[in-house]
């Protein structure tokens, strides 16, 4: 990958070309322009807030999995962990049961524990991340079904569902959560030592180890952050849909990974960041919302999304040459 003598490879875009750095922004602008012509209502404040709310769950997951992808790992268990955390949180969120912090804390805990299990198996157990998280994908789904008895957990308190539906100063709570998560993650990855270590480990694990970085610790941290974010996304999803559903979130991991990859983070680790991920999630959200509003058939939507994922990465790799 990158130069092993450079322990902290690449700040975003260090040596990347102009096209690679701004390609996504340009794509978003072109797409936005086209939508604005066809759909005069698309660029109204309310609609943009709706699109933002729609991308927030995928956005939170994508930010989380950015940590793991940056270390050169992968997490396929996201969708199942979303369901598990949603069921767990919903179980504590019936009206009059517990104060709001309890379901939120339990959902986050469920996600973090799944992440910790993934991280430990990858580092201590030395099993490939693909396999570990594939196992977790199945096991967490099973656990969600066991805990819920196969039925959605409904009858949730209004305080809890407000996480999905309320607005603060006109901005929906899920959007605020997503923005906060993205901003904190960007600062952490760029300006804090453990964040920089994540890039170092992903760029060259051997070099990182030689320069005294606790590689296992860094990887474990990244899986735990990813799990916690999946837990958070599960809470927001349960609140938004007013139930904890054991079948929720199927395939969410792939949407999240797609957003990260569109955003320029390399699957082999060490390159990329949260800024790109946010743009990637925005692009995917604008496309699917715009195509829905244009009444484009679901069959064509899938083809279009597939082409965009591949095109984005292809453009990115060309830009880097």
């Amino acid at each position: 990958m990158s130069n092993p003598t450079q322990p902290c490879p690449v700040l975003q875009g260090g040596q990347r070309s102009w096209a690679a750095r701004y390609g996504l922004v340009i794509a978003l602008l072109i797409l936005g322009g086209a939508l604005a012509i066809r759909l005069p209502t698309f660029f109204t404040g309310t609609n943009l807030l709706i699109v933002a709310r729609q991308i927030s769950i995928n956005g939170i997951l994508a930010v989380g999995v950015t940590f793991v992808l940056l270390t050169g790992g992968v997490d396929l268990s996201l969708g199942s962990v979303v369901a598990l955390a949603g069921v767990v949180a919903a179980g504590f969120a019936h009206p009059g049961d517990w104060p709001l912090v309890v379901p939120v804390a339990m959902g986050l805990l469920a996600g973090t524990l799944c992440g910790a299990a993934n991280g430990l198996l990858v580092t201590r157990g030395r099993v490939a991340p693909f396999i570990v998280t594939l196992g977790m994908m199945t096991a967490a789904r099973g656990l969600a079904l066991v805990l819920s008895g196969g039925r959605p957990v409904s009858n949730l308190s209004p305080e809890f569902t407000a996480i999905g539906s309320a607005s603060v100063v006109g901005i929906p709570v899920p959007v605020l959560v997503f923005s906060a998560v993205a901003a904190l993650s960007a600062v952490f990855l760029n300006h804090f030592r453990p964040g920089r270590y994540i890039y170092a480990v992903g760029g060259n694990a051997e070099a990182a180890r030689a320069s005294g970085i606790n590689v296992h610790g860094v990887k474990l941290l990244s899986y735990m952050v990813c799990g916690a974010m999946a837990g958070l996304a599960g809470i927001v999803l349960a609140a938004r849909t007013t139930t904890g559903q054991p079948n929720a979130g199927v395939g969410y991991e792939l949407d999240a990974i797609a957003a990260v990859v569109i955003g320029g983070t390399s699957l082999s680790g060490g390159v990329g960041g949260v800024k790109g991920t946010v743009l990637g999630a925005l692009l995917m959200g604008v496309i699917s919302s715009g195509l829905d509003q244009l009444n484009v058939s679901a069959y064509y939507q899938q083809i279009i999304k597939g082409l965009i994922i591949v095109a984005a990465v292809w453009l990115d790799s060309r830009g880097k040459k």
């Binding site: 759909l39 209502t41 698309f42 309310t46 609609n47 709706i50 709310r53 729609q54 769950i57 999803l237 938004r240 849909t241 139930t243 559903q245 929720a248 699917s288 919302s289 829905d292 509003q293 244009l294 009444n295």
Partner: peptide, 16 residues
């Protein structure tokens, strides 16, 4: 068949 997807779809239809 998915609740979250139907919600997004309806939001988009309300816009258009």
């Amino acid at each position: 068949w998915d609740r979250a997807k139907a919600m997004s779809l309806m939001e988009n239809w309300i816009q258009s």
